[in-house]
Design a protein around this nucleic acid. Structure first.
Lengths: 203, 203, 203, 203
DNA sequence: AATGAATGAGATTTCATTCAT
DNA sequence: GATGAATGAAATCTCATTCAT
C-alpha cells in the first residue's frame, strides 16, 4: 500500500520555514540550520527536497512572484468599471501588504538577487509586463467607455506601475510614516485627475 | 621632511575598489580579498584604513547617500520657475543614473541593508524627507505664482518621490526597456496635467 | 534503532587531545588544528562539541580542578590518625605528580589564565580553601587526640598548603633536582617537629 | 660632536612599557603596538633595540630575575644575627611584593615561559640555587652561633625557599585573603620553632 | 635615529553540503 | 525517508615583522 506522497507537503513546510528565517535574519545570514530548525526537520532533510540553498531561494522567488501574477490575473478578469477595478486593485494590494509586512525585507533582497541573476530578473520583468498590459487593457476600456480622455495608455500604465513599486519601497523603509492604501489612492486620483474625459481641455 | 598624508587618498582608493567588487559580486559574495586585489593592496592594508568590512560598507553607504542629498540641496537653490526646476531636476538625476548604472545593484543591496539596520534606514528616510520637503517648497512656489492650481502639496510631493523611486527600481531591473529620462518626464507631465491652474487652457 | 550517544566520548577525546597539544605547545601556540589532528578529527568537528577554543580551555580547567578537589575530599574521609593521614596525603599527591609530569606546564599556564579571569581565579581559591579547611580539621583532631600541641590550626594549615604549592612549583621547574615526595615529607616533618605535644619526647 | 648614546635609555623605556603592557593584557595578548604606544615610540623603533618580541620578553625575564638575585646577594652580606637577617629578608621581600602586585600576573606567565624554554628555566633554577645556598649559609651560621639546633641545613633551606614560592603564588591568586608579610613570618616562626637550640629535645 | 605604510602567514570560526546508518 | 556526525572550503581578522623614506 503506497503511502500518500508527502513530498509537496514537506516542500511547503520548508519554504514556509525559509520565509521566516530569511525574513528574520536575511538571505545570507540565515543558515540551513536556521531553516531546518524552524521547519522542525533535520538539516539533511532539506536536501531531500531541495538540491541546495539556492534552490530554496529560487523556489521562494517563484512562489512569491507567481502569487503576485495570479493576483494580477484575477483583477484582469474582475467585473466592474475601470475606475472601480483600479480601486479594487489598490484595496487588494493594500491587504496583501498588511499581511506581508514582515516578509518585505525578504522581498527587497529578492530584488538584489534579481540584479545578479538574469533568470530571476526576467521573471520580475515579466510581472511588470503583465501588470502593465493589464493596466493598458483597463485604461483602454475606460477610454472606450468615455470614463477617461484619450491618452497614451502604455505610458500611463507604466507610471501607475512605477507608483506601485515606489510607494511600496518607501513603505518598506518607513512603514510608520507611509500609509500604503491612502497614498496609493491619492496618487491614483492625482493621475486620473489629469485624465478627465473631454469637455475640459485635454493634454 | 614630512611625507604628504596619503591617508585620504588610500581610503578613496579602497572605497572605489569596494564599489567595483560589490557591484560585480554582491555585498556578501565580494570578499576582503576581492576588494584588496582591486585596490592593488594587500588584505591587511584594508584594515589600516577601515576597521572591518562593515566599516567599508558603512562608508560607502554614507558616500552614496550624502551625494544624493547634496544633489537634492543644490536643486533647492537653483533658479528658474518651478516647472523648469522640476525639469532640471529630472535632467540631473537622469544624468546621474546614466553614470551609475553599474553601481545600481549595489544601491539595491544597500536598501536591503537598510531594512535590517535602523541607523541606515533612518539615513534613507531622511533623504526621502529632504526630497519631499524640497518638492513641497517648489510646488508651493508654483501655486503662489499661479503656475499650479491649489493642491495638497505634501501629497503631490510624496507621489513624485514615489515615482522617482519606482521608475528607478524598474529601470534597474530592465535598463534596456525603461528610459529613465523619458519615463520620468512623461510621468511628471501626467501629474502636472491634473494640476493646471483653474480655467486656464492646457500647456 | 537509535545509535548510542557518542557525544560524551567525543568530548573526552577532544579534551584528551587538547591536553596533549596544550602541554606540548602551550595554551596559545597550540591551534585548533593541532587539537583536531591529535583527536583524529577535523577542525570543524571540534566546534560540534565546544563552542570555541576558550570553551575547551574552560572545560579542561574544570576537569583539572574538579579532580583535584575530589582528591582532597577523599582524604578528608580517610581513616587513620592525623599524622598517618598527612603521610597518606603526601603519598597520594606524589603519585599524582608522577603521572601528571607532562601536563604540569599546562597547569602552570592555567595559573596564568587564573590571574586574568576572575571566575577561574575563584575556582582555584576555592580549592585552596577546601584544602585549608580539611587540614584545619585534621590538625584539630590531632590536637584533640594529644598528637599535637595547641596551635593556630588555620595558620599551620595555610603554611602546609603553601608548602604544597611551593614544592610543586619548584619541582615543575627542576624535576630532576627536586624529589617531590621526599621534600614534602621532610618539610612536613620540620613543621610537625615544632608542634610536639608539650613535655613529650621527640618522635 | 657625538651625541650621548641614548641606547640604554631607550631600551629601558621599552622594557618599562612592555612590563605595563604585558601585566595589563598578558604576554600573548599584548601586541608590539601595545608596547610601542605605551613607550611613546613607533613600532619599528622597537626593532631598533630588540630583535623581536621574544627578545623583549627575554630581556624582561633577565631584568626580573637579576633584580631578585641582587636582592638575595645583598641580604647575604647584611649584618646581624641569622634570625634577624631572616626577618629582614622577609621584610624586604614583602616590600617588593607590595610594589610589584600589578606585575605579578606577568611573573606567573614567566614561569609558563620557563616551562618551555630550557634557558629560562635554568636561570630560574639558578636563582633557587642561589637563594638556597644563601639560606644554607645563614642557617649554618645560626647553628654555629648556637641560635639553632643541629639540622640538615640544605633541607631546611629548601623548605624555606618553597615557602617563599608557595606563599607568593597563593598571594597572587588571592591578594585580599593572603597577607604576604604576616603569613611568611608565621610560617618561618613555625619552622624555627622546631629548630630551637638544645636543652629541649632535638629532632 | 625614526617611522608611516605595508604585508606574509596564520588563527579562529562558519557554513553549505555529504556520508553512514 | 530521515538524521547524527562530519568536513572541505573559505571568510574575516590579527600580528609580528619589514621596507622605503
Amino acid at each position: 500500500m503506497p503511502r500518500p506522497d508527502r513530498s509537496e507537503e514537506r516542500r511547503d513546510q520548508i519554504l514556509e520555514a525559509a520565509i521566516q528565517a530569511f525574513a528574520e535574519k536575511g538571505l545570507h545570514e540565515a543558515s540551513m540550520d536556521d531553516i531546518a530548525s524552524r521547519a522542525g526537520l533535520s538539516k539533511p532533510a532539506l536536501y531531500l527536497y531541495f538540491r541546495n540553498k539556492d534552490a530554496i531561494i529560487g523556489s521562494l522567488l517563484r512562489f512569491f512572484f507567481e502569487r503576485e501574477m495570479r493576483g494580477v490575473r484575477k483583477l484582469l478578469e474582475a467585473p466592474g468599471s475601470p475606475r472601480a477595478r483600479l480601486d479594487a486593485m489598490n484595496e487588494q494590494f493594500a491587504a496583501v501588504m498588511d499581511h506581508m509586512q514582515l516578509a518585505m525585507p525578504l522581498l527587497l533582497e529578492f530584488y538584489g538577487v534579481a540584479t545578479r541573476q538574469a533568470s530571476v530578473r526576467q521573471s520580475l520583468v515579466a510581472i511588470y509586463q503583465d501588470f502593465h498590459d493589464m493596466l493598458v487593457n483597463l485604461l483602454a476600456q475606460g477610454v472606450a467607455a468615455g470614463e477617461f480622455c484619450a491618452m497614451d495608455t502604455s505610458q500611463v500604465a507604466f507610471t501607475l506601475t512605477a507608483l506601485y513599486e515606489g510607494i511600496t519601497l518607501m513603505w518598506v523603509m518607513a512603514p510608520h510614516m507611509v500609509d500604503w492604501r491612502r497614498q496609493m489612492q491619492a496618487a491614483q486620483a492625482l493621475i486620473l485627475a489629469g485624465l478627465q474625459p473631454a469637455l475640459d481641455a485635454a493634454n
